[in-house]
Structures are given as structure tokens and as C-alpha cells.
Design a protein around this nucleic acid. Structure first.
Lengths: 336, 336
DNA sequence: TTGTACGCGTTATCAG
DNA sequence: CTGATAACGCGTACAA
């Protein structure tokens, strides 16, 4: 069993052999250096260095029964939202010594299979609400590891983190109605596409009711810039009457706004346009985009921290987490 | 050895027991279903489903000697650049059945240690040029697995992917000089902070030489928006004279541009401002930002594909890869 | 302080 | 087509 240079990549055995110690000692040197006599320790460390030995993570995981990694499942990485989320999460996970495995589902055929597979390589999984994964899959992986939901205000069976949507949407809408005297408002986005869109529309409706107005049905659209031209065209061609467009996110809002301007409609004079997310572009366009800011990075961090807690104490009682958002008023709503 | 329901998470043994077969058969059912009689197969699959069995990735990795994962080391995820890169890479890796472990180094103390650790959990590592990792660390992990560099035009010892910088910077600068008659151009960014900045400045200098002009030294700045105000102030307060600012990236350019306008300096009438990356904001600001577009997503995908090839055939001869970029002329340079 | 020996959960080889 | 069994590389009681 004592091969040395000839073998493959160096293992703990190669190191032990060469340093004239047992593998137990090598392991100790790496994990709890102070439990080993300095002389031996140095000898081992030198060999480790010579051989460029790096412990195999898989073997280690198997032994310690922990993958030291979390899975983060997102639809994509467009816009600042998901990137910030990932940044925050990675930080929170890293603080606990865990790495992050990202799974981007957009464009993938067998998402359910991939999520299942992922469940075998990580200690816990965070599932973005917008990803389409079968309930049975969720149920399956939950039997194996902790699962946290993100921006899935409905599906209350899994513990989740959500940023406030209803009230901020309501506040935003009210602002448009009361401050700018808008009356023909339209919500741009598909409420059934994701829970947060649903909630934003709900707030939109609530504000109307509170003002004694009737909310028009939503104008369907995805989160992507691509849908902007179509929506703008609807309005330019008179198929849609509106003096305010409450868009589901910034990308959409910016695109609509630009195409409206290009078509000769003045924003915000003729039509107010608002977004959601407060990405970098929102600050730089003219007029500045009135939007809603979410503490996305912090959200990511908190989710990671919670996951770590869950991993340490699985009996920990689940709770729903709600993070506050802030209305950011710029000029696209009509404010000076 | 035959425990059943009482035990911990279901293993291949639990399944085998319950389905009255050997673990070998369970493994086969999952890997090569057609090598097992339909009757037994179905029985096993049913048990798998009942128990919610998911094979342990670590154990599997140990057995097949492959982590089925790649490591991607980036400084951060701000701006569209890294997010796109990651998106492309994840796709390319996923096409080969591998997942991606992201390591964000900004703000982390022991990057070298983290990279080493990562090397034990993945089959290959991609290192962004901008991350600060010791050469000895790189050397160490290279002995263990394939390492690809990204945007590190110098360090030619490791195979790497780079987007063209020198020529596009030269073209951009020439445009400013020839078309817009600029003469007092300044490069904003620190050439020593990253190889691509270095190369962009090199192109800036080259264009000057070609035009018989002398290039001014760079105005130091990071890639972040935060540095914009300072640079703008320099100019507003007369400490810096310039009729064109060639910025290292979009964030910087946008920030500078905005603060210049706020300070009463007209862009592009008095000063041209250009960026790099062509993020979403570049399209939406006024004036539109003249910048350089890189095929980042495609870059990511290509790197992943190359990594897969390297993993299959480690003897594959290394080569340096250069991807083309395109100058995107908008209005911030002075064009109508 | 150091070493022996076993377990971790899969895959793969080789008999049957 | 199916079953025993040996790796895979590491951590860790337990023993010395």
C-alpha cells in the first residue's frame, strides 16, 4: 500500500509515507496543528508543500458527512437583482466556511433532475420562487436537506424570505394618483409569472380601491427588456390608454420609457413610468427612474445565515421573513 | 448492516434492502437502467421514490474520481461583466454535466487558502486575472488540476482567454482624435490594477503615437462608480485639463459623466467621455455612452468548453485565446 | 504524541 | 441479469 512518487495525484498516504508518519498525523497537522509536536508538524507541512497536496473534498465530505456547500437555484443572472443576491449569499455562506454552487435554470430542459442532483452535492438548497420546479421535487429534496424559498410569498409550506411588495406597490401607486393626479394607470407585468409580480399588482389594485378607483387589468409582460417595445407600441398606436405605467421591474420600465420617448410621447409629462429594483441604470437615465429599492445583497446574506443556522440545528422552527423596501422617487413619475 | 426506516437519510443500502436487491442493482438502475430487468427496475425505482433517495454526490465523486464541478474565481459580481461571464460559463459547464462553484474574493482575507481549498472540490479552476492570488498558489493548484486564466493578458504561463483590448482602445482613441478633434485626452483607470486596464491604456498610448501626439499619464481610478465624483471634481476644479476622458469601464464613465454634467460641464460638447463593457445603462443614459462591447457571455461559454476538453484530455496543448470586441459609438464621444 | 483500523456511500469489476 | 466485494481518500475513536 506504500506507493510514492509513481502514483497519481498525491493523497494523504503519499504525504504520510514521505513524512514517515501515519495518515492520522497528516490529518491532524492539517486540522488541529497544535495537537502535534512541532518537529513532526513541520516535517509534514514541508512534504505537503513539496507534493502540492490538497485534501480531496469529496473524501472529506464523505468522512465528515457535510458537503460544506450550499446550492443556490436562480432562473438567470440578468439585471442587478440576482447578481446582488448571489453576492450577498456567497458572503454569508463563506462566513460559515461553505461554498456556493449556482444553478441557473433558464434554458435548461430538465430542471427537476438538476435540482435533485444538486441536492446530493450540497447541505442545503435555496430556491428562487421564479424557478419552475415541480412540487414533488421540492417535497423530495426537503426530505433530504433544508430548503429555503426566496421571493415566493405564496407557497407557504417552505420557509422563505420575501421582500415587501404589496405595500410599496400601494405607496407607489398612491403617489402617482395623489401627487401626480394620474387616473388611467396600467400595471405592466404578468402577475402569474412570479409571486412578487402578483403582489405588486395586488398593491396596485389596493391603492385603486383605497382611492375609489377601479384598477385596470395588467398588461402582460416578462421581466426582460425585450418586452418594452411591444408595450410602448400598444400605447403609441392608441391600443392602450394610460397616463401612468407601473412596470414590474427596471429593465421593463427603462425599455418602455425609451421607446415611448422615441415615439414622441413625453415621459413623465404625458405618461409616468415607474420600475422596481433600483438598478444602476435607474439612476443614470433621464428622466431618473422612480422605482422601488430592495436590500437585495442583505437579503442574500440573511438567507445564507439562516441556512447555516438550519444546518446546525435542523429542529429550528421555521418562520417567514419579510424585508422592507423603499420607494425611490426620481423624475419619471412626474416629480421635479 | 441492514437497518431500514429507523436510520438516517436513505442510502443506497436502504433502497437495496427495501427493494430486495443488492446495492449493485440499485446503482445500475440509476446509471444504466437498460441493463436491468424491467420488473426489478420498476421495483427499485418505486422504492427510490418512496424513500426520496438521492445519491450522495461526495461518495459518488470519490468513486468516479471526478467532482463534476468547476471552480470559478471572480473578484465580485458588480456590473454586467461578471454576471454575464458566469452565466455563459455555467451554461457551458452544465452542457457537460458539471456544476459551478463560485468564489468571490473581494473582501475576503485568505484568498489563497480559499482557492486551495476550492481546488480540492472541483475538477478545474478558472481564475479571473483581477483576483489577487499568489503565484505559488497558482503553481500549487496547477499540479493538481487544470487552471485557466481569464483577462490576464500577461501571465502567459497559464492558458488563458482574453478579450481584445489594445486595438479597440486604439480605435476608440483614434476616433476621438480624428473624428472629434480631441487633443487633450486622459485615460481614467489604473493600468496596474488589472491586465485589461493595462492593455487599454497601451492602446490609448499607441493611438497617440500614431497621431504624433504625446499621451498623458493615466488618471488613477478603480472600476467602481465611487471613483467618479473624485475624477469629475479634478476636472471641475481645474486640476485636470481634458477634452476627452477614456474611462476603464462603463460604471466609471457613467459616474464621471453624471458628475460632470451636474457640475455644469457639457458632455460631449466640452468633454467626450467613453466607457468599456456596454452594459445596459450605457444604452439608456443621455447622451448614450460610447463604449466597447465584449462578447462576455460567449467568452464564458468558451472557457467552460475549453475546460471540459482539458478535463477529458489533459495532454491537450495549451493555447492563448483572444476574443474580438466591438466599438459601440453613441453620443458621449460627440457623435450625433 | 502518534498509529491502527474502521466507516462514510458509491461505482465498478468480476463471478455466478 | 444480479450479487459480493474491493477500491476511492479522509477523519477519528481507540489503543499504544
Amino acid at each position: 500500500m506504500s506507493s510514492d512518487g509513481t502514483g497519481r495525484r498525491p493523497t494523504i498516504y503519499s504525504v504520510a509515507d514521505r513524512a514517515q508518519v501515519s495518515i492520522a498525523t497528516v490529518s491532524r497537522v492539517l486540522r488541529r496543528p497544535d495537537e502535534v509536536r512541532p518537529a513532526t508538524r513541520d516535517r509534514v507541512l514541508q512534504v505537503v508543500d513539496e507534493l502540492g497536496y490538497v485534501p480531496d473534498g469529496a473524501a472529506r465530505s464523505l468522512a465528515v458527512k457535510s458537503h460544506e456547500a450550499h446550492g443556490l437555484v436562480l432562473p438567470e443572472l440578468g439585471g442587478p437583482y440576482y447578481a446582488d443576491l448571489l453576492t450577498g449569499y456567497e458572503q454569508g455562506a463563506a462566513d460559515g466556511g461553505a461554498s456556493v454552487v449556482v444553478l441557473l435554470t433558464d434554458g435548461k430542459a430538465d430542471v427537476d433532475l438538476l435540482v435533485r442532483r444538486l441536492a446530493g452535492r450540497v447541505d442545503g438548497i435555496v430556491l428562487m420562487g421564479a424557478v419552475q420546479v415541480a412540487p414533488t421535487t421540492v417535497a423530495a429534496i426537503r426530505r433530504k436537506l433544508p430548503v429555503l424559498g426566496l421571493a415566493n410569498s405564496h407557497e407557504e409550506s417552505v420557509e422563505s424570505f420575501v421582500t415587501e411588495n404589496v405595500h410599496s406597490a400601494e405607496e407607489l401607486t398612491r403617489h402617482l394618483v395623489e401627487v401626480h393626479g394620474r387616473r388611467r394607470l396600467r400595471f405592466v407585468g404578468s402577475p402569474d409569472i412570479a409571486d412578487d409580480v402578483h403582489d405588486r399588482y395586488a398593491g396596485f389594485v389596493a391603492a385603486h380601491q383605497a382611492a375609489g378607483l377601479e384598477a385596470a387589468p395588467p398588461v402582460p409582460a416578462t421581466f426582460r427588456e425585450e418586452d418594452g417595445p411591444r408595450v410602448a407600441a400598444l400605447l403609441l398606436e392608441g391600443e392602450l390608454e394610460a397616463d401612468a405605467l407601473v412596470c414590474a421591474n427596471d429593465e421593463l420600465a427603462l425599455s418602455v420609457m425609451r421607446h415611448l420617448s422615441a415615439g414622441g410621447v413625453s415621459v413623465p409629462d404625458q405618461v409616468s413610468v415607474t420600475g422596481w429594483d433600483d438598478g444602476m441604470a435607474a439612476r443614470y437615465v433621464t428622466p431618473g427612474l422612480t422605482t422601488v429599492s430592495q436590500p437585495v445583497r442583505e437579503l442574500g446574506r440573511q438567507v445564507a445565515v439562516r441556512m447555516r443556522a438550519l444546518l446546525e440545528d435542523p429542529t429550528s422552527v421555521p418562520e417567514q421573513h419579510l424585508l422592507p423596501t423603499t420607494l425611490v422617487v426620481r423624475q419619471s413619475c412626474g416629480c421635479p
